[in-house]
Design a protein around this nucleic acid. Structure first.
Lengths: 352, 352
DNA sequence: ATGAAAGCGCTAACAT
DNA sequence: ATGTTAGCGCTTTCAT
């Protein structure tokens, strides 16, 4: 317990290091390290002395140094376009929960829907030497070289929700085809004959797949396809309003509308109500993805719930698998089972 | 341009290092470092050679090593209770935006409203040697030793939204008193005489302050205070419903209700509508904090908008100031100016 | 059971 | 203009 006056850390960081502990106790850093890491070859007394000193001096290990030394950071990087979209907020929260349980830290980056920032984020994460990356593309993103990059470097990566179909990465997706098929078929069963669809950007893989589901449902029920009823959007606020105006301006406007973002359906319903249209009798609505808005709006919105938390959980578990197996991991795709929630925006025999 | 066969990185990390670059070019690491960091004492030719090689070999700097060496990480840690609350999602997004602009990375931690995890998060951030911490307390949090800790270590910290009044930290808060005063006064002006208030946990500083604003408004207008009308809650889903039941069970139920979380007001309105009560004539509602739900619900909810993005921006700017000034920084408190948004849930002369 | 020393990748004196 | 070297905080052989 040799007491020197110089207990205060002297180093650059201003924080207590194992050198400080070693000096304080008059032993070597190696011994301190062993005690701290609970190694075998150490006397119980020394261990206790070190542990006590660590508490006394408020020693906190420097993760940077540890990671640098070990070549592993136990950190996962997440790149998302926008946490303000409820889907991403929920998925992210779940990722953090699982990460913590599995001994990983999480660095979150927002691309803000910008391709440039998404690329920048990816590079930052590589520079931070994260063990793996979870990524959902910005709507702007057209080129996927940064993803190839990550893969070439042998860094684990899982693509979720807004995935890119041009690269063979591990992916977690929704039942996009089935969900969209269900929703559209439900509209048809409710008597809708002219069904409009509002998608995200045309290049989105999920736009394409959901469109395919829509087409399949129409075909199954012998309804002809009309390109007038298919609209892409940049997913801006109030796009729903604009697209609804467009639909209503058609010579033969839809009697049912499916939107890829539930929020857009809500915006449309606001507009429909302004025009004194009767929902769902005159026009019915369904959306992809459940949230508080869908539940509380009047009429409540029929949705395909894609379980954001499950997506988050599956994605991070797949990533950890990828990290653990390293080279031997073979990319695969997992689709999370969703569920149709029928509500008043589409149910014509009106239940309340 | 000396070519050796051994271009591939040999090291533990598996990634290209400046040593690899140096070998590849047959020069010293110091020169490589200088070139990479755009130092003065270097010939343009060597610089170019290095930069080219960096691209060719896909060199990415190791931030861990840089940070360890410099004693600065350029990283900010954020601890929030739950991103699924729209306020935090928006504040966080803004923090990231500003951080990026200012050359900082962000590590986000969720406490999930747990004190234990909040403490753990804080320690992790210290261990990561972040330059500063932005923190909003979990609702569970009772002890603030971990905050004292951070301050004692000389790490910059800014407390926002859910602040603790027992410690002298830098803080960014809302106009909690004024906002609550405005909302309640507005109800009074609309003719409400019996005003219920639903707060968060009693120990929350913001609960206390918002209650004070409520009391002040009542007093100004000569309305007697009744403890029956004051309810605390743990901010769980559907607490609004329960509290509304309670209010309605009173011998003399309120004719106006103010909730600290807008979502609770929505839940109450759902319940009120089920009971065929007329809003706002029979009972009016106002909430603290604006979000999509408040705008889209029918009737739309009168709120005090506390501008989440501004809070996020102010908090991170204050933190960066703290980081830059270090010792000479004196903690202060900044209140973000809010704004009353009157909507149909309270406006008795009904505008639509 | 403990210490000495090398090394993780990088920067910054200090040479030359 | 470039090379040599020490050191950031830690773990881990290899000695003893």
């Amino acid at each position: 317990m040799l007491e020197t006056e110089s207990n205060k850390p002297t180093k650059k960081s201003g924080q207590v290091t194992i050198v400080d502990l070693a000096k304080h106790l008059g032993i070597s850093v190696a011994t301190v390290s062993r005690a701290l890491n609970d190694k075998s070859d150490i006397s119980p007394l020394t261990r206790k002395a070190v542990l006590d000193a660590a508490v006394e001096l408020d020693y906190k290990p420097n993760l940077l140094a540890q990671s640098l030394n070990k070549g592993k950071t136990n950190t996962i990087g997440v790149v998302i376009p926008n946490v303000e979209l409820p889907f991403f907020a929920t998925a992210l929260a779940e990722m953090q929960r699982v990460a913590l349980r599995s001994g990983y830290r999480v660095i979150v980056c927002h691309s803000g829907e910008s391709e440039e920032i998404e690329v920048l984020n990816t590079e930052t994460l590589i520079a931070c030497r994260v063990d793996g990356i979870l990524l959902s593309h910005a709507k702007e993103t057209n080129s996927f070289d940064h993803i190839k990059h990550v893969i070439d470097k042998g860094i684990a990566i899982v693509n979720f929700d807004r995935v890119c179909n041009e690269i063979d990465t591990a992916k977690v997706i929704h039942e996009d085809f089935k969900g969209s098929f269900c929703l559209v078929e439900h509209l048809i069963e409710q008597g809708c004959k002219k069904i409009g669809i509002m998608l995200g950007p045309e290049k989105f893989y999920i736009s394409q797949i959901r469109l395919a589901g829509y087409k399949a449902a129409l075909e199954k029920h012998g309804i002809a396809l009309s390109t007038d009823y298919i609209v892409y959007s940049e997913m801006k606020k109030n796009d729903g309003t604009r697209v609804f105006d467009y639909f209503m301006s058609l010579p033969n406007p839809p009697d049912g509308i499916f939107t890829m973002l539930s929020r857009n359906a809500i915006e449309m319903m606001v507009e429909a109500k302004k025009r004194k249209m009767i929902i769902p009798e005159e026009i019915a609505f369904v959306g992809f993805g459940d949230d508080a808005l869908a539940e509380f709006f009047e009429p409540s919105l029929t949705v395909f719930n894609h379980f954001p938390a499950k997506v988050g959980e599956a994605a991070i578990n797949m990533l950890i698998e990828n990290i653990d197996k390293k080279e031997s991991f073979l990319p695969y795709t997992q689709a999370i089972t969703g569920e149709l929630i029928v509500r008043n925006s589409s149910l014509k025999n009106g239940i309340s």
